[in-house]
Amino acid sequence: MLGLDFSQVDWNEIGTATLDTLRMLGASALFSFIIGLPIGVLLYMAARSTSGFVRFGYSILSFIVNILRSVPFIILIVAMIPITKSIVGVSYGVLGTIPPLVVGAAPFFARLVETALNEVDKGVIEAAHAMGSSTSQIVWRVLLPEARPGLLAGMTITIVTLVSYTAMSGQVGGGGLGDLAIKYGYYRYETEIMILAVVLMIVLVQLLQMAGDRLVRHFTRK
């Protein structure tokens, strides 16, 4: 079939690469969410502040987020090598790719959080103010629960974006399916492995997207 021969494929290598991808994804998604969520909330709150000083802070934070989002990921990896080393000790392998993945994805996720929070009905927030809620009560009891479907959708988009980022991190010997596809398929013309790696990544993205959509639907009450 198409002259492809899958008998020579080293399934062990495929398995290791898949696990590496999952590990990179899991860790980088987790940290991106943990860091991106508060930044997103901060962006949302700062934009609405009555204090000119805080709104100035918003423009600065927003500017930093935009910069991080516009740097091509491949350049971010290289530029971050010293920082990555100081955080996780190495700048290669699965561990070495996680800091650049997080720095690449957290600002992206923060923007998605801000967008999701913007969608929350202003009237509900006003009602919470009228009931005597403090700012933190409004964040925890109104904004985040009301924005939950939007936040879950944002998480799904972020994690899917991270799948393609992990593929690029193969450039620094990051390992994983993307690395495999480039190393074997692109440099060594072993088309079979490249196809397999790409197919696995497609399946991964499909599964993640489906799971995400499910969660969003489950929590949508409108």
């Binding site: 009905d121 009237g123 009301e146 929590f219 009450r221």
Partner: peptide, 29 residues
Amino acid sequence: RRKIGMIFQHFNLLSSATVYDNIAFPLRL
């Protein structure tokens, strides 16, 4: 403000909370 109740034209209920949880909201605060 907790001593001043307010109702609105568009109700402004939490869409993510049940009737019970909406009514319990001011108490949980």
